[in-house]
């Protein structure tokens, strides 16, 4: 019974839904804006709006309900590509995603699932 439940629940549900997203987003954003490799992409003029956007990032990475398509991801990041966004920056974000989830004691198998979802949009984010 419980096995069946865990196999049908989405990653988003298993990780803890919106509460998990809320816990993750600030930890993650602190890491991102402290990281000289990538913080130039995150304008510091409107922190609240940026944090809200990172909530969307996590909901997506956790496979939660979202309406983003590959094209949306391309559009959302296109101006960063013109600023030089490349694989090294993407890798840095992946690093922070993993570290954040570890800090929240998310089990390793769920972290890999989230990483795989984020990895799946690499080409869209990088405009390839």
């Amino acid at each position: 019974m419980s096995e069946e439940k865990s196999s049908t629940a989405t990653l988003y549900e298993r990780i803890g839904g919106e509460a998990a997203v809320n816990a993750a987003v600030e930890l993650f954003y602190r890491k991102v804006i402290s990281d000289y490799r990538i913080n130039r992409f995150f304008s510091n003029s409107n922190m609240d709006a940026q944090i809200a956007k990172q909530k969307a990032f996590f909901t997506m990475a956790f496979g939660g309900p979202n309406n983003y398509t590959g094209t949306d991801m391309r559009n959302a990041h296109a101006r960063f590509v013109t600023m030089g966004l490349d694989d090294s920056h993407f890798d840095a974000v992946m690093e922070h995603l993993g570290a954040t989830l570890q800090e929240l004691n998310v089990p390793a198998n769920l972290i890999s699932e989230a990483a795989a979802i984020a990895e799946s949009v690499r080409n869209d984010v990088l405009g390839k």
């Binding site: 709006a49 809200a52 909530k55 969307a56 909901t59 939660g64 309900p65 979202n66 309406n67 983003y68």
Partner: peptide, 9 residues
């Protein structure tokens, strides 16, 4: 509007 799921505000 953007995410339509209460995240992006």
């Amino acid at each position: 509007n953007s995410c339509r799921q209460g995240a992006c505000q």
